[in-house]
Simulated assay, not measured.
Amino acid sequence: MKRLYILAFGLFLTSSLAFAQGGYKVGTKVADFTLKNTQDQQMSLGQFKDSKAVVVVFTSKNCPYAKLYDGRLQTLATTYADRGVRFLFVNPAIGLEEGGDTIKTMADKIDTSISDMTYLLDYQQKVSKQFGAVKTPEVFLLQSSADGFYLRYKGAIDDNPQVETLAKEHYLKNALDAVLAGRTITTTERRPTGCMIKKF
């Protein structure tokens, strides 16, 4: 009986580890997905196939860490828009079962003066699980190619969530510059700092 318990516990740990390491690996092709935006319209990744790159940002207006990065991400999105890069902000429905964000409440929290920002709601967390996102904010840089999108970088935005001016390593910006210049990305993955995405 004890042996069976140990075996079952071992299988549990193995499956938990596999889940924690799930999602796309850097260099792999990303499947298309469709989610609703704040205007209750369906939007898909495939709509942005003409972009040079797409940054998928898993974020939440309820997360203090995500709020700290709001300005930085909006600046990056605006700066790189003219260079063929599109940012998609995906809310993984944190706390939805406890009265969290809906399309309406999420829309109410968005700065309407930033008209070119695309916010999507991942109601059933299908996309966040597909990517293997575990925290907000967490970014995934996708490079466009003739046959779809490929993951080139994932993880943290930079190395200082608290104070923007003290950040020394700008992981996402460096990865974007490398992709657009056709160079190899030196840092392809960094563990993000943020709020855990509660799976349900």
Rank of each mutant, 00 (worst) to 15 (best):
M1H: 13
K2Y: 14
L4P: 10
I6Y: 07
F9N: 07
L11D: 03
L11Y: 09
T14M: 14
T14Y: 15
L17N: 10
L17S: 03
Q21G: 14
G23I: 08
Y24M: 13
K25W: 02
V26M: 03
G27K: 11
G27E: 11
T28C: 15
A31Q: 15
D40H: 07
Q41S: 12
L45S: 03
G46H: 01
Q47S: 12
S51E: 13
A53M: 08
V54E: 02
V57Y: 02
F58W: 03
T59I: 05
T59R: 02
N62H: 03
L68H: 01
Y69W: 00
G71D: 01
R72W: 01
L76M: 06
A77K: 00
T79V: 01
T79A: 08
Y80W: 01
A81P: 00
R83Y: 06
V85D: 00
R86D: 02
F89I: 01
P92F: 03
P92W: 01
A93W: 02
A93L: 00
G95I: 03
G95L: 15
L96I: 07
D101C: 11
K104E: 02
T105F: 09
A107K: 05
D108G: 01
I114H: 15
Y119S: 02
Y119A: 00
D122N: 15
Y123D: 10
S128A: 14
Q130F: 05
F131R: 14
F131I: 03
G132V: 07
V134D: 12
V134F: 08
P137W: 04
L141I: 10
L142A: 15
S144C: 14
S145R: 04
D147F: 05
D147E: 13
G148E: 08
F149R: 06
L151A: 13
R152A: 14
R152S: 14
K154V: 05
A156F: 03
Q162N: 10
V163S: 11
A167T: 08
E169I: 07
E169K: 04
Y171I: 06
A175E: 00
D177W: 00
G182M: 04
I185Q: 05
T186I: 11
E189M: 08
R191T: 13
C195V: 04
M196G: 06
M196R: 14
I197K: 06
I197G: 07
K198R: 12
K199A: 02
K199I: 02
K199P: 01
